[in-house]
């Protein structure tokens, strides 16, 4: 493998481990899975295939960022906005049927 590709693979691994620290099932769980995925492809030598695998890894990074963002947004919405509105609406509906 060229040094350039070697560097890109290493960088991707570091990035994944870094972002995996926030993984809902825990950083250790993620690290093990990530390590296994890299090891599975350790014998790949074709530069085109290596590049393809790197871009797949980069896609996972983007997906994780989106997952975290959504998870945080949803938690905050539930904590500060939705639940009250939801309960209020529910009570209103119950009273509505009560009056009928």
């Amino acid at each position: 493998m060229s040094t350039e590709l070697k560097h890109a693979v290493k960088q991707l691994y570091k990035t994944l481990i870094f972002i995996g620290r926030e993984y809902p099932k825990g950083g250790i769980y993620f690290r093990d899975k990530c390590h296994a995925a890299f090891m599975k492809n350790k014998d790949v030598t074709d530069p085109a295939e290596i590049k393809m695998l790197i871009s797949r890894g980069e896609y996972v990074v983007k997906e994780l960022e989106a997952l975290y963002r959504l998870r945080k947004y949803r938690t905050l919405r539930k904590r500060y906005y939705d639940s009250e509105t939801f309960e209020e609406t529910m009570l209103k509906n119950i009273r509505y049927f009560d009056e009928k």
Binding site: T15, I19, R69, Y80
Partner: peptide, 13 residues
Amino acid sequence: DLRLNEPRYATLP
């Protein structure tokens, strides 16, 4: 407030 934007992720680099 919550809906102002979607904050970017602070990446390792």
